[in-house]
Amino acid sequence: MGSGLVRLGLLASALLLAGLVATLTGCSKVEPPAPELLAQARGDQCVEPTDLMRRDHMNILMHERDEAKRYGRRNPDHSFVGCIDCHVSPTASRDEPATHFCLACHEFNAVRMDCFQCHTDRPSDAPPRQRADLDRSIDQYLSTQAAGPTPVMEIATP
């Protein structure tokens, strides 16, 4: 039994090692973000000192996130929307990280974050860029369909 376990362990570690090597060889060299692509911050000064923000912006966002979300205690100075509105260029896009204040740095430092899967990646005043055929509300869409969804099957009513 002992030797079986050892062999099973060896197999598992070999697989892990192979995966690691494959991942590392897949990595390419990352260029630092070019500052000229990033828009200038629009306010005079950030809400907190720069060195503090560099070090702790994630903690500020994380702590106040729960306060704001769960208890409605919002702090406009530390709001996520505020960061985006001030720092991100209206023409930036999450798909081109080099143009995006947050993503450029995160990409360079290889720190993954998923904020922009839900939060919009652009300031409030950015023009919409949605595809025209999709830029309509559900009732508008359904009104173009004949009388909304058709019943798949009527329910038997006694």
């Binding site: 949605q130 055929d133 999709l134 309509r136 509300s137 559900i138 869409y141 359904l142 969804p149």
Partner: peptide, 8 residues
């Protein structure tokens, strides 16, 4: 909230 053309 936008329609993505798939009512279901």
């Amino acid at each position: 909230v936008h329609s993505l053309g798939r009512p279901q």
